[in-house]
C-alpha cells in the first residue's frame, strides 16, 4: 500500500495529474462564462471588485498577496483562489472537520475562519505536510493502517492528527479519540484512524519521522 502511494505521488509530481487536467479544462470554460457575465452586467462586476481588499497570507511557508472579499472564508480562498484543493469542503458549518487546517500549528476549521483573520499567522494545509515528495509520518501511517475508505475526510483527519501529535507526542487511545473528535468519517474508519495516529506517534517518537 505504502509503495503504491509513493508511485502515485511521484507520477503526479512528474506529469499530468487528473486534478490539473480538470482544472485547466474548467478554467477555459469559466473564463468564457465570466467574460459574458461581465458584458451583460458590468455594474455588478465593478461592485464586487470595489468590495475587495488586499490580503497577505502565509500558507505552507509561502506568502500569497491577493485581493479578497471580506466574507470569503479561508476554505474558499484556499480552494478557489489558490488551488489548494487538498483542504475539503464538507458541511461548511464547523461540524464535520473536513476543512481542518493548522493556524500557527493549532487545528482549526477553515470553513469558519475568515481569510482576513489569519493574516500574520502561519497556515499549514495538507499539501504543506509533503516535503520533497515525501509524505509525513501521519500521512504514511494513514496509508499503512488503511485509515480511510472514500478518503474525503482524510485530509482533515490528517491535519487533526498532526495537531494532536504536535501538542501531545504520546497520546493515550482516549486522548487520540478526544483529539480526533472534531472530525467525522462517514465510512466509519474510526478504529483504523486511531491505529494510524498511534502508529504515527510511535514513528515520530522513534525519531527520523516528521
Amino acid at each position: 500500500m505504502a509503495k503504491k502511494n509513493e508511485r502515485d505521488t511521484k507520477r503526479c509530481h512528474g506529469g499530468v495529474t487528473r486534478r490539473g487536467f480538470l482544472a485547466s479544462v474548467g478554467a477555459s470554460t469559466v473564463g468564457a462564462v465570466v467574460a459574458s457575465r461581465a458584458a451583460a452586467a458590468p455594474a455588478q462586476q465593478r461592485e464586487s471588485l470595489e468590495g475587495m481588499v488586499p490580503c497577505t497570507l502565509k500558507i505552507n511557508g509561502r506568502h500569497h498577496s491577493l485581493l479578497v472579499e471580506p466574507r470569503w472564508s479561508l476554505l474558499y480562498v484556499l480552494r478557489e483562489e489558490l488551488g489548494l484543493t487538498g483542504t475539503k469542503q464538507g458541511c461548511e458549518r464547523g461540524e464535520c472537520g473536513a476543512c481542518t487546517v493548522l493556524v500557527d500549528g493549532v487545528a482549526r476549521y477553515a470553513c469558519l475562519t475568515l481569510a482576513l483573520e489569519v493574516q500574520g499567522h502561519a497556515v499549514t494545509t495538507v499539501e504543506g505536510l509533503v516535503v520533497d515528495g515525501q509524505l509525513s509520518a501521519v500521512q504514511q501511517a494513514f496509508v499503512a493502517e488503511d485509515a480511510f475508505q472514500c478518503g474525503y475526510c482524510t485530509p482533515g483527519q490528517v491535519m487533526a492528527a498532526e495537531a494532536l501529535l504536535r501538542a501531545n507526542p504520546a497520546p493515550s487511545d482516549e486522548e487520540i479519540r478526544e483529539g480526533m473528535s472534531g472530525n467525522l468519517c462517514r465510512c466509519g474508519a474510526y478504529d483504523h484512524i486511531v491505529k494510524a495516529v498511534r502508529r504515527a506517534a510511535a514513528a515520530r517518537r522513534a525519531g527520523g519521522a516528521r
Partner: peptide
C-alpha cells in the same frame, strides 16, 4: 465544549 478545533477558535 464542542470539538478541539472549535475550542481552539
Amino acid at each position: 465544549v464542542a470539538s478541539p478545533q472549535l475550542r481552539n477558535q
